[in-house]
Amino acid sequence: MWGSWLVMTKDGQVIGDIGFKGKPDIRQAVEIGYGLLPAYLNQGFATEAVQALIEWAFEQTEVTGVLAKTESTNQASIRVLEKAGLIQVGSDNQYIMWERMKRV
Rank of each mutant, 00 (worst) to 15 (best):
R103N: 13
K23P: 11
K102R: 14
I54D: 04
D25W: 06
L37I: 13
F45G: 05
R100D: 04
M97W: 15
D92T: 10
D11E: 15
L86S: 01
K23C: 09
A52D: 09
T64G: 01
F45D: 04
G44N: 02
A68S: 05
A29S: 13
S4R: 13
N93G: 06
V30P: 12
V104R: 12
V66F: 04
L86V: 01
Q75H: 02
Q75G: 00
I78Q: 14
R27S: 07
T64S: 07
Q51S: 12
V66K: 01
E31V: 08
M8H: 02
A76V: 09
Q43D: 01
M97T: 14
A49K: 11
V104P: 05
L81V: 01
V14Y: 05
E82I: 13
T70C: 10
G33E: 12
L37T: 04
G16D: 14
A52T: 09
G16W: 08
T70I: 05
T9H: 10
D17K: 15
R103T: 14
K10E: 09
K21H: 10
Q43C: 05
D92M: 07
S77A: 05
G33P: 02
K69T: 08
F45H: 15
I26V: 12
N42W: 02
D11G: 07
G3W: 15
E59H: 10
S72D: 03
M8C: 11
Y95P: 00
M97E: 11
T61A: 14
V7E: 08
F58V: 11
I15Q: 07
K69E: 14
L41Q: 13
D92G: 12
Y40T: 06
E99P: 02
S91L: 01
V50I: 00
V80L: 09
T47L: 06
E99Q: 10
K102P: 00
P38A: 07
A84W: 02
G65Y: 01
Q51H: 03
T47I: 09
Q13L: 13
W5M: 15
Q88I: 09
K23G: 06
G44V: 14
W56C: 08
G19K: 15
K69N: 02
E48I: 03
P38N: 10
I78E: 08
M8R: 06
A29V: 01
L36C: 10
V7N: 10
K83L: 06
V89F: 03
G16F: 13
V89W: 00
L36K: 08
K69G: 02
W5C: 09
V63R: 01
G3Y: 08
Q88C: 10
T64L: 09
T64E: 07
A39W: 02
N93D: 14
Y95M: 09
R27Q: 04
A29M: 12
T9K: 13
E48L: 04
E31P: 10
W5Y: 15
